[in-house]
Design a protein around this nucleic acid. Structure first.
Length: 653
RNA sequence: GCCCGAGUAGCUCAGUGGUAGAGCAGCUCAUUCGUAAUGAGCAGGUCAGGGGUUCGAAUCCCCUCUCGGGCUCCA
């Protein structure tokens, strides 16, 4: 007899040994579109036998686990299609990923996929799906596995990896004590740990999206494979919704909006990754920077300014030439000295610290600068303002006593969140990145610094995960991520407790007892870089920046030329409370001017005509609304927008 | 840097071997208008650059550059 506990339903007894399918059939109220099951916490094929005494829950296609299964199964279908179309193709790995899946191939004779091939492959996949091929799990010994995949070098490498207990390969391929495979047909079988859907007919709401090169095992010294990315969903509607989201994301692309809104561009004559900001973009930048500077001054930071170049000596002391030479711009020789563009601001801030004897009474000493640094990024990684070669960090270095560290970090993290919120961002999470393999310093220091960061995270209540081994070589760090309006994650702020530079620069302060201990040093970028943060704001707001950040806040449109005097009067009363106003004179029809102003995403488009002059009113078009408010009283309108035209007050504790 | 894709007017794009096109934007003139495109006219091009094939190349081939999608990288 087999006893099975169905989660949230209750215990069932069966005369025979049962599989998940049997249990499901026995239920009166069956859960919908079940693709797999979880037996005692383990995600498993529905066809697997269930041991007596197990607890079972069923996984529906619209759950995260269910989608993972169907995406993974769709990847297998794609592999089968590619192998049918390209005899002799080698296939490597094909996992499910966020929103979809991919599979890596090595085509014979150096063939490459083109975009048209995607359609051919999709068509073949639909045939496979229509055939309702079963996914049959088989468990093999290593030897059988090696035999079965003798023509598939990547599979062989995975099997050998599994035999040696590689965790990475276990995830990809197989089971302890042997390997598992999933067979769809006599000719198509794939090495896989599973689980999978019961048969290919349960799939079908998918689309192949793009082809890309990808290194085998992510190692650029190894073969470059052809990767096809696809997306797959539980229903036609969910697929359509996802494709719609992709379109929406494309509309938010800051590179596209940056051009449409005349904010910035990347002149080829200047070089890749080196943007120029046009007047509107530069104004937004100015507002971002001024808001930040004021907040920093209010929070007891002191401003610093440092040059863009320094002698090699400085970067030898700091260690940048040792650790990051590849990422630095090449040197310039001048009058017998070697100069480098700076990749970071910290060494220069340290020189400010060291310019005089520092007492414990001065600490924490907080230096702040919008410091432009240059980093040589490989051409393929540049991405609009989000990844550039010349970037301005809103960079701060805080020097404090060891006993001040935890308090200072907490205060700092609070400040970071306060300023980010002032820009209308709300949804944050953090990563605590710990010591990497390639690093310097002793364990106690790393432990203490990491612990202080953890204390700060706990104190602010920011949700966080620990990223083992993801720290910088010299320091553990907190990375703050945010989710934008359509749920995408962006890394912004970073806080690092530096264990190395104070030593390298032989920094100290004079303590109460006249001893000379080393200060701790905290590196911190809050926006990350001004350029990248600019991009995030554009994408988050889809170009419709909050009023206080909008280059033009009010467009005033006199209906006829003889309404110009009143338009100027309205303009003056708005300008008097600090607003940025543009009058669009009546040289073309009203509709055209309204359209232009709306396309520019001006927050308020104000129309004034005969009726408004006699009643001292306005026609108000708010951004995002397609219906105007007519006859709004001028004075009360000005009063109502007064608060939003100027940068927000940032209250620092 | 590597793989794939794309470069035609300021922008968006049409043009597959036979005289370089359209819309928007720009300029000029006219129009004076109450809620998302007023009309007419003008101007605008080394078809990314270089080489090749051809009687003839935006179009076919090769190289280079730039941009985009990924991979790797991101102090």
């Amino acid at each position: 007899m087999t006893k099975v506990v169905i989660k949230d339903v209750g215990a069932r007894e069966f005369d025979q040994p049962v599989s998940g399918v049997d249990v499901l059939r026995s239920m009166q109220e069956r859960p919908q579109s079940v693709l797999a099951m979880v037996v005692d916490g383990q995600l498993t094929d529905l066809s697997a036998n269930i041991e007596t005494g197990s607890e079972v829950s069923f996984v529906s296609s619209m759950t995260p686990a269910g989608r993972e299964v169907l995406r993974h199964s769709t990847a297998h279908v794609m592999a089968q299609a590619v192998l049918l179309i390209y005899p002799g193709a080698k296939f490597a790995i094909g996992p499910s990923i966020e929103d979809g899946f991919y599979y890596d191939f090595d085509l014979p004779d150096g063939q490459r996929f083109s975009d048209e091939d995607m359609e051919t492959i999709e068509a073949k996949m639909r045939e496979i799906i229509a055939a309702k091929q079963p996914f049959i799990r088989e468990e093999l010994s290593y030897e059988q596995g090696l035999e079965l995949f003798m023509d598939q070098p990547y599979k062989l490498e995975i099997i050998r990896g599994v035999r040696q207990g590689s965790v990475e390969d276990l995830a990809e391929g197989a089971d302890v004590g042997g390997v598992s495979v999933y067979r769809n047909t006599d000719t198509f079988v794939d090495l896989c740990r599973g689980p999978h859907v019961g048969h290919t007919g349960q799939l079908g709401n998918f689309k192949l999206l793009r082809v890309a090169g990808a290194y085998w095992r992510g190692d650029e010294k190894r073969d470059q494979l052809q990767r096809i990315y696809g997306t797959a969903w539980e229903s036609k509607a969910a697929l359509a919704e996802h494709l719609h989201r992709l379109e929406e994301a494309e509309k938010r692309d800051h590179r596209r909006l940056g051009a449409e809104l005349d904010m910035f561009h990347f002149p080829p004559e200047i070089g890749g990754g080196l943007p120029v900001f046009h007047p509107k973009g530069a104004l937004v930048r100015y507002l971002m920077e001024e808001t930040s500077r004021k907040a920093h001054l209010a929070a007891d930071y002191q401003l610093a300014w440092t040059p863009h170049l320094a002698k090699s000596t400085l970067f030898e002391i700091s260690g940048h030439l040792q650790w990051y030479k590849d990422g630095m711009y090449p040197p310039m020789e001048m009058e017998g000295s070697t100069y480098y563009p700076k990749p970071m601001n910290c060494p220069m801030h340290i020189l400010i610290y060291k310019s005089q004897m520092r007492s414990y009474k001065e600490l924490p000493l907080r230096l702040f600068e919008f410091g432009t640094v240059y980093r040589f990024e490989r051409s393929g990684v540049l991405h609009g303002l989000a990844r550039v070669r010349g970037l301005t960090q809103d960079d701060s270095h805080i020097f404090c006593t060891p006993s001040q560290l935890a308090t200072e970090l907490t205060r700092l993290l609070t400040f970071v969140l306060t300023l980010l919120r002032a820009f209308g961002l709300e949804d944050f999470e953090a990563e605590l990145a710990t010591r990497p393999d390639k690093s310097v310093g002793d364990d106690d220091e790393w432990e203490a610094a990491t612990e202080s960061l953890r204390v700060a995270l706990e104190a602010t209540g920011l949700p966080y995960v620990v990223a083992e081994g993801e720290g910088a070589f010299y320091a553990p760090k907190i990375d703050v991520h945010l989710r934008d309006a359509i749920g995408r994650r962006w890394q912004v702020s970073t806080l690092q407790v530096d264990l190395q530079l104070p030593q390298r620069f032989d920094m100290y302060f004079v303590d109460q007892d006249n001893s000379r201990p080393r200060p701790y040093m905290i590196h911190r970028a809050l926006f990350g870089s001004v350029e990248r943060f600019f991009a995030i704001l554009i994408e988050h707001y889809a170009g419709a920046l909050p009023t206080w950040l909008s280059p033009t806040q009010f467009a005033i449109l006199p209906v006829r030329a003889d309404h110009a005097a009143y338009a100027d009067e309205v303009s003056a009363s708005l300008a008097a409370c600090g607003a940025r106003v543009k009058v669009l004179e009546a040289s073309e029809p009203l509709g055209g001017r309204i359209r232009r102003a709306k396309m520019e995403k001006v927050p308020y488009v104000l129309v004034v005509g005969d009726e408004d002059i006699s009643a001292r009113t306005l026609g108000v078009n708010r951004r995002g609304s397609d219906k105007p408010d007519r006859s709004v009283d001028l004075d009360s309108f000005v009063e109502s927008v007064r608060a939003e035209v100027n940068p927000p007050e940032i209250l620092v504790e």
